[in-house]
């Protein structure tokens, strides 16, 4: 009976896939979509990369709410961790306040960092920061932008955490929150400015549009990097890394 049910469901999923595949194949093989519309108004957007123009200008509302979703996700994950700490189940909110005592739970199988990883990270860190800044800048006229730059910065943070989370600069809780929310508030603030001049919300046009977009993207890069890093740090249960290190020291390994 169970096998019948399973096969039946598999057939159902295949039918669903076949239907979706037929729908995809029935689409015209060449279709410009909205690219002509974007190209026609690209001059007004302040940037020359169409993807950035769509993200930050034409559909800025989407991106604003998306930054908001990111911020809320970081706060949600962070609140789980701090709740756990107050319940005595675990320790540590972020990299700053870790005690590493009495933590028992599911541990991530992260190997202790060797010299290769530590040396590599030391070597890579300045380059990653440089490339991240380049990606942020180049986003106005070529593929790149806040998301790529932020993800790259966050990857550097993750690498540092994997080496030794105590290497991360200790930040106060309020500063972390400000950095988390910076992108959203800068974006929303700049978005409200056009209202004062009788324009629509988030309507960036004119000669200053390019600089406004760069400013928003810079703030968003910081926030995205911070959010992604915190999502990793909170889920990775850093004190367990600490405990590992303590155990290794205890056994003289």
């Amino acid at each position: 009976m169970a096998i019948l049910k399973r096969t039946g469901f598999a057939v159902l999923v295949m039918l669903l896939g076949a239907g979706a595949g037929a729908a995809v194949l029935s689409l015209p093989p060449e279709w410009n979509g909205l690219s002509d519309t974007v190209a026609a108004r690209l001059d007004e957007s302040g940037v020359t990369n169409p993807v950035t123009a769509v993200l930050l200008n034409f559909r800025g509302y989407d991106t604003l709410l998306e930054i908001c979703v990111l911020m809320l996700a970081a706060f949600a994950v962070g609140s789980f961790v701090s709740e756990r700490r107050s319940a005595g189940l675990g320790t540590g909110r972020g990299a700053a306040e870790t005690s590493g005592q009495g933590h028992r739970g599911v541990e991530l199988p992260i190997a202790r960092p060797g010299r290769v990883l530590t040396g590599l990270v030391r070597l890579l860190a300045p380059w990653i920061i440089l490339v991240s800044g380049y990606l942020l800048w180049v986003g106005s006229h070529a593929p790149g932008g806040a998301f790529q730059a932020g993800a790259l910065l966050a990857s550097l943070g993750v690498l540092i955490v994997l080496c030794d989370h105590r290497l991360l600069p200790r930040t106060a809780s309020w500063l972390r929150r400000v950095l988390l929310a910076l992108g959203f508030w800068v974006f929303a603030g700049f978005g409200l400015v056009p209202l004062m001049f009788g324009q629509a919300l988030l309507q960036f046009s004119g000669p200053a549009a390019g600089w406004v977009i760069l400013g928003i993207e810079t703030a968003c890069t910081v926030s995205i990097a911070m959010v992604l890093l915190l999502l990793f740090v909170c889920n990775a249960r850093l004190p367990s890394l600490d405990a590992d290190a303590d155990r290794a020291r205890g056994t003289g390994a």
């Binding site: 979509g33 690219s35 169409p50 769509v54």
Partner: peptide
């Protein structure tokens, strides 16, 4: 599928 040499930027942004 866009013909102009550049892909449609709107789905990319999405």
């Amino acid at each position: 599928r866009a013909t102009g040499g550049h892909p449609d930027p709107v789905p990319h942004a999405m």
